[in-house]
Simulated scan of single mutants.
Amino acid sequence: MNSVVQYTSHDQYAIVSIVNGKANAISHQVIEGLNKSLDIAEKEQKVVILTGQPGIFSAGFDLKVMKESPESAKELVTKGSELSLRMLRFPRPIIVACNGHAIAKGAFLLLSADYRIGVEGDYKVGLNEVQIGMTMHHAGVAIAKSRLSEVYLNRSVSNSEIFEPKAAVQAGFLDLIVSEKELLATAKSIAESFAKLHLKAHAETKLKVRKKHLLKIKKAIAKDLKSNIVINP
């Protein structure tokens, strides 16, 4: 797709890889590459496996862009929220093969997928926005409410609690934990299973199940567009 997002098509699924430096930061270029990848996967009617680099799925938004100005932060966060909304209503299953750390927008991508596989190890998963001084945006709250366990919602969003992989399953960020060497093979196996789903039935049922949350996320994005992203010193 571009230099930071790679797309590889297979018989029943497509592998989309984020490759953007040490932190695998979510930049404008990454979001553009992910959207183009989803365009192709939708046209080819492929299950999507979204993955990162060894040890890191993504540490979140590109901090250089976020710190540039309130306007630049707002633009990037809005594009990220729109990507999550698209993923949540994507007509084919999206599996995340989470290679390791998934922080901030990296964790939100987990919450935007249909099935999430993490790896064993000393890895961190969670929403650290409040910890680093960012008041959580409306869409972030709405996305978190749509997928996180009620017990873990405040711990994750308001308190910025970060979890190791097994606890991340309990919280609702992940569905399964495997060893690093089993990650991609497990994702491929699940993708092949999901490929047997009836395309139209899956797409229509997903929208029914998520209808309430999709509407709330869409309204939350509109709210964020009318306000500034607040990053406290």
Results as ranks from 00 to 15, higher is better:
Ile95Arg: 03
Val96Glu: 05
Ala97Gln: 09
Ala97Lys: 05
Cys98Gly: 01
Asn99His: 13
Asn99Thr: 09
Gly100Tyr: 00
Gly100Pro: 01
His101Ser: 06
His101Pro: 00
Ala102Gly: 04
Ile103Lys: 07
Lys105Trp: 15
Lys105His: 14
Gly106Val: 11
Ala107Met: 07
Phe108Ile: 10
Phe108Tyr: 11
Leu111Gly: 02
Leu111Phe: 07
Ala113Arg: 07
Asp114Thr: 12
Tyr115His: 15
Arg116Asn: 10
Ile117Val: 12
Ile117Phe: 04
Ile117Asn: 00
Val119Trp: 03
Val119Thr: 05
Glu120Tyr: 06
Glu120Pro: 02
Gly121Tyr: 07
Tyr123Gln: 04
Val125His: 08
Val125Tyr: 07
Gly126Trp: 04
Gly126Asp: 04
Gly126Leu: 13
Leu127Arg: 01
Leu127Gln: 10
Asn128Lys: 13
Glu129Val: 08
Glu129Gln: 15
Glu129Phe: 15
Glu129Leu: 15
Val130Leu: 08
Gln131Cys: 07
Ile132Asp: 06
Gly133Leu: 13
Gly133Lys: 14
Met134Asp: 05
Met134Ile: 13
Met134Cys: 11
His137Glu: 14
Ala139Glu: 09
Gly140Leu: 12
Val141Ile: 15
Ala142Trp: 06
Ala144Glu: 08
Ala144Pro: 02
Lys145Thr: 04
Lys145Ser: 07
Ser146Thr: 09
Arg147Val: 06
Arg147Asn: 06
Arg147Asp: 04
Leu148Trp: 07
Glu150Ala: 10
Glu150Met: 09
Val151Ala: 10
Val151Met: 09
Val151Trp: 03
Val151Glu: 14
Tyr152Val: 04
Leu153Trp: 08
Leu153Gly: 00
Arg155Trp: 06
Ser156Thr: 15
Ser158Asn: 12
Ser158Leu: 13
Asn159Gly: 01
Ser160Trp: 09
Glu161Val: 10
Ile162Gly: 01
Ile162Met: 10
Phe163Tyr: 14
Glu164Asp: 07
Glu164Ala: 09
Lys166Glu: 13
Ala168Tyr: 06
Ala168Met: 11
Val169Asp: 00
Val169Met: 03
Val169His: 02
Gln170Glu: 15
Phe173Tyr: 15
Leu176Cys: 05
Ile177Trp: 00
Ile177Gly: 00
Val178Ser: 07
Val178His: 04
Val178Gly: 08
Ser179Ala: 14
Ser179His: 10
Ser179Trp: 04
Glu180Ile: 07
Lys181Gln: 14
Leu183Gly: 03
Leu184Ala: 11
Thr186Glu: 13
Thr186Asn: 09
Lys188Trp: 07
Ser189Asn: 15
Ile190Arg: 11
Ile190Cys: 06
Ile190Pro: 02
Ile190Lys: 12
Ile190Asn: 07
